[in-house]
Design a protein around this nucleic acid. Structure first.
Lengths: 132, 132
DNA sequence: CAGTATCCCTTTCGATACTG
DNA sequence: CAGTATCGAAAGGGATACTG
């Protein structure tokens, strides 16, 4: 990567924006992280409001990006569990500073919290190594 | 904000995604940060490929979010300069960890760097307080 | 110079119904 | 249960031409 002197390359932005720019992507990553492993319908509940199509689509993309892992069990009824890969876990951690920045604005600018995400359990991050 | 125990609220995501999810937003913030202050056409050059409409639109949003400042001078020909607010500067810093995460993947997964942003000078961050 | 005004295309996402 | 198939509305952006 192009990092020399006081420069940091923004090239990786290409990957970042496509992933985290998606409306539900970070919420999904976090929801799974909060629970270790989650099934499709459980995710539907955590992310109240998401449609099966959107969830399915996003799940596939996150999988393709190597951020989550899908495990299917040959049972009846079928069972599929999603969990974070190491990469996904790292992503989950690396957005903390950004969250901190946003949180500061939220409070100083007196915005109401979560008007859009209200009711979504997954709007909290749990069990994460907190920055000092 | 709802931060207690091992929880960090993702509510601010509402604001974050809308801002940084936009294709050019972070690039613009960074381009201005790299140069202290920039004029409209200078931005057009740094962000090679952006259309005046898109730049104009995004600039207004970033302004509305309080991330950049617009100063117009009553001269002929007109001169307008954009600079980062403190908030914008903070944002620019807080994406570093995310960049680090993405950079690591980029290299380990052998993706080609910047296929989408190639040629855009603003794909580098300069003069920033680097994380240890 | 610093944008605006149009037009249009693409992607995204939601709702709903259906299936292995 | 875990999705897929369709359809449609809406937003994001790009190209280009024009203006105060």
């Amino acid at each position: 990567m192009c990092e020399n002197g006081d420069h940091v390359c923004l090239c990786p932005l290409e990957g970042i924006i496509d992933v985290i720019g998606k409306k539900w992507a970070l919420l999904i990553v976090n929801a799974i992280g909060n629970n270790e492993r989650l099934r499709f319908n459980a995710l539907m509940e955590e992310l109240s409001g998401i449609s099966p199509k959107t969830l399915s689509d996003t799940l596939k993309e996150l999988q393709a990006e190597g951020l989550i892992k899908r495990e299917a069990f040959s049972e009846i009824p079928p069972r599929v569990e999603y969990s974070l890969t190491d990469d996904g876990t790292e992503l989950r951690k690396s957005i903390i500073p950004l969250l901190g920045w946003a949180a500061k604005r939220t409070s100083t600018e007196k915005r109401k919290c979560a008007s859009r995400y209200r009711g979504i359990t997954a709007h909290q991050i749990k069990n994460i190594t907190r920055p000092s």
